[in-house]
Amino acid sequence: MKIRAATTDDVDAVIALRIESEAWLHSAGIQQWVDRARGVRNIRDGIAAGNTYVVEHESTVVASLTLAGPDPDFWTDADIPSSALYLYKFMIGSPHRGTGLGSRLLDWACDQARQRQKLWLRLDCWRENKALQRYYMQHGFQHVRTVVVAGRGSGALFQRPVLAPQPSHPLQQASRR
Results as ranks from 00 to 15, higher is better:
residue 13 A to S: 13
residue 16 A to W: 03
residue 18 R to P: 04
residue 25 L to W: 03
residue 25 L to P: 02
residue 27 S to V: 04
residue 27 S to P: 05
residue 27 S to W: 09
residue 28 A to W: 12
residue 31 Q to F: 13
residue 35 D to S: 08
residue 41 R to A: 12
residue 42 N to C: 10
residue 43 I to C: 06
residue 49 A to I: 00
residue 51 N to A: 14
residue 55 V to T: 08
residue 56 E to D: 14
residue 62 V to C: 07
residue 63 A to H: 02
residue 64 S to K: 01
residue 64 S to E: 04
residue 65 L to P: 03
residue 71 D to L: 13
residue 71 D to F: 11
residue 73 D to H: 08
residue 74 F to H: 03
residue 75 W to Y: 12
residue 78 A to I: 03
residue 78 A to H: 06
residue 80 I to F: 08
residue 81 P to G: 13
residue 81 P to S: 11
residue 82 S to H: 10
residue 82 S to P: 00
residue 83 S to P: 00
residue 86 Y to L: 10
residue 87 L to A: 06
residue 88 Y to G: 04
residue 90 F to T: 02
residue 91 M to I: 07
residue 95 P to A: 11
residue 97 R to I: 09
residue 101 L to K: 01
residue 105 L to H: 04
residue 106 L to F: 13
residue 107 D to N: 07
residue 108 W to H: 07
residue 109 A to R: 00
residue 111 D to A: 14
residue 114 R to W: 13
residue 116 R to H: 09
residue 119 L to H: 05
residue 122 R to D: 03
residue 126 W to F: 15
residue 127 R to F: 15
residue 128 E to R: 01
residue 130 K to F: 15
residue 134 R to D: 13
residue 135 Y to W: 15
residue 137 M to N: 07
residue 138 Q to G: 11
residue 141 F to A: 09
residue 147 V to M: 11
residue 148 V to W: 10
residue 148 V to N: 08
residue 149 V to T: 09
residue 151 G to N: 08
residue 153 G to L: 11
residue 154 S to L: 13
